[in-house]
């Protein structure tokens, strides 16, 4: 009955880009063996930014859940890594385990938070982050705002530590991005975007809206926690204020808006842009922050779709396609 049709998902450009990504991954693996210290530690920073941008984009750009409280999971990820390491878990295992614990904790949190809508959710998440901050301060191990260091890392000499941390960051970022891409390519990913555009209509077409939102919420919490644990590994010291600060959400929003909200490629691009700006201008202190704010304003005025959103509209280029195109061969 149906004429022959095809669903196109992959294009030549996207096949090439997957190979490019694979090559980049291999290059990064070799890089980790080269042992250039500053390169490796900057690499970890970049991976943290990519993780934060990609998970915030998954939440806001794909599921429509704007949050300004993702620092809750960033901070908890670092906190549990310290807590576990202090109770004798090997330090890198503690970092991975920490993210799993935070993801498990985010499940009950989602029951409360996902009842909130739009702006309420955004601000509610901020409140949640502040609450987590206060609770962490109650742990005597942390010594309030004085903080503590991840002393267990001293067991490794600096060079080995950097190589392990870089490899850990590389693998976890690749895994998180890979999982997200797989998720967004599935029918579940299409449903997430439907929820973002109109959750009532999605529900009336059989989509279990709450379950879908919850899954992406937990996923974003996991990604945030991994990023927090990596940041701790790179900086060693844990001061609650710096980890639970709202500036992390501001950075995530900046990266995603500049890169292109709701596009898989955009979040990664935004993280790279942010990384470059930070690398060259962070030394300027207050002026750096002013510049960052100005850049955000300029981008939202000139490229409201972000860099990648503009590329998509102009050239219809998709490096990592998550859409479905219908192509009909013998009709009309």
């Amino acid at each position: 009955m149906n004429p022959s049709y095809r669903i196109e998902r992959w294009t030549t450009a996207s096949r090439i880009s997957v190979w490019v990504f694979a090559l980049l991954f291999l290059a990064a693996c070799f890089l980790s063996q080269s042992g250039n210290d500053s390169l490796l530690s900057r690499g970890v920073v970049l991976f943290v930014y990519v993780l934060l941008a990609a998970t915030w984009n998954a939440l806001a750009g794909f599921a429509g859940l704007m949050s300004v409280g993702q620092q809750a999971f960033f901070g908890l990820g670092a906190y549990f890594a310290i807590r576990l390491s202090d109770s004798g878990v090997p330090v890198f295992a503690a970092m991975g385990l920490s993210a799993i614990i935070v993801a498990a904790l985010s499940w009950p949190m989602s029951i409360v938070m996902l009842r909130l809508k739009d702006g309420e959710f955004a601000i509610g998440m901020w409140v949640l982050a502040s609450l987590c901050h206060l609770l962490v301060n109650l742990d005597p191990l942390i010594q309030g705002e004085t903080g503590i260091s991840l002393i267990a890392l001293n067991a490794y000499d600096p060079e080995t530590r950097r190589v392990i941390l870089f490899t850990f960051a590389l693998v976890s970022t690749t895994a998180v991005l890979g999982f997200l891409f797989f998720l967004l390519q599935s029918r579940f990913g299409t449903a997430l975007q439907a929820i973002r555009d109109n959750d009532e209509a999605a529900g009336s077409l059989g989509v279990n809206v709450l379950k879908a939102k919850r899954l992406i919420f937990v996923f974003a919490a996991f990604g945030g926690a991994i990023a927090g644990a990596l940041w701790l590994g790179a900086n060693i010291s844990f001061q609650p204020k710096t980890y639970f600060g709202v500036q992390w959400s501001a950075y995530m929003i900046f990266m995603v808006l500049v890169g292109g909200i709701g596009t898989f490629e955009g979040a990664i691009l935004g993280a790279i842009v942010f990384f470059i700006i930070e690398t060259f201008f962070a030394a300027f202190g207050v002026w750096y922050l002013i510049g960052l704010g100005t850049a955000a304003i300029v981008f939202s005025l000139v490229f409201p779709q972000g860099i990648w959103g503009t590329v998509v509209r102009k050239w219809n280029l998709h490096l990592l396609p998550i859409g479905r195109r219908l192509s009909i061969s013998n009709e009309k």
């Binding site: 299409t190 975007q193 439907a194 555009d197 009532e200 209509a201 077409l205 059989g206 989509v207 479905r324």
Partner: peptide, 22 residues
Amino acid sequence: HQVPKPFSGLSTFENVYIGASF
């Protein structure tokens, strides 16, 4: 819905695909 509620960021095909697959 009386006031149409399209999934504006998705294609027409993907809009209908949501109904078909869920």
